Simulated assay, not measured.
Amino acid sequence: MAVRDVAAAPGRWRPGAATRIVLVPGSSGRLRDEARTTAAELVQEGHLDRSPQIVVKPHPAPHDLALQLGRVPGSASPEAYRVETAGDVTTITGSSATGSSTAPGPCSKSSAKRAR
């Protein structure tokens, strides 16, 4: 796999006590395992002291990490993903659950989309 596009984000998303992992409706069933894995990784990597709450909501709040399925422009690969930080929210969009799981940790400084 190769990174196809990288653009610096205007800030850096940082998880905190209020951080939740938000599953966008319609994607929640297929991404629940990825959400649990991501929650565990945030604790294991020392970003949080406790596992964040996993919720299903249409719109994330500040400090949330949103996971969703959707089209990744420029790629038809099932492993494609896009990481976007807008204000205090980071959204990982995977073209499939596989794409969501191959995305880098959410604490990175850039937005990226990856494709084969």
Rank of each mutant, 00 (worst) to 15 (best):
W13C: 04
G11M: 04
G105N: 07
L23M: 06
G99D: 05
G26D: 13
E45Q: 13
S108V: 11
L31S: 04
G16S: 08
Q44V: 00
G94A: 07
K113D: 15
S77L: 07
S28G: 13
V43D: 05
D64I: 01
S110Y: 12
E34T: 12
A112K: 15
P104M: 14
V83H: 12
T37G: 13
D49E: 14
Q68L: 11
S28F: 01
P104D: 15
L31H: 00
P106A: 12
R114K: 15
V24L: 10
S27D: 01
A86E: 02
T98K: 14
S111D: 06
C107M: 13
A17V: 08
A8R: 12
G105C: 10
G11H: 13
S100H: 07
A97M: 09
A39F: 06
P52Y: 07
R71V: 15
R82M: 09
D64P: 02
S111Y: 12
Q53V: 01
G87P: 02
P104W: 10
L23D: 01
V24Q: 10
T91Y: 06
C107K: 13
D49Y: 04
V22G: 05
W13R: 10
T37I: 13
M1N: 12
L65W: 03
E84R: 14
V24F: 03
G46N: 10
V3P: 08
P15C: 12
R12M: 11
P106K: 02
C107I: 09
H47S: 08
I92F: 03
V6D: 14
L48N: 03
A112V: 09
R30L: 00
H47E: 15
A61V: 08
E45P: 06
R32T: 02
S27V: 08
L31R: 01
S108G: 11
I54R: 11
I92H: 05
V56P: 02
R114I: 00
A17Q: 12
H47V: 14
S27E: 01
Y81P: 00
Y81A: 06
S27G: 09
G87L: 05
G11N: 09
G26S: 06
A80V: 01
I92A: 08
A2R: 15
L67S: 05
D64L: 10
L23N: 01
I21S: 02
K109T: 15
P60K: 03
I54H: 03
R116D: 00
S108I: 13
T37M: 12
M1D: 07
A80Y: 04
P58W: 08
R36D: 03
T91G: 10
A97I: 01
G16M: 04
R71K: 11
V43H: 01
G46T: 14
P104L: 08
E34M: 09
S28K: 00
R20D: 00
A18P: 10
D33Q: 09
R71Q: 14
E34I: 01
G74S: 06
R4D: 13
R4E: 11
L67E: 00
A35H: 02
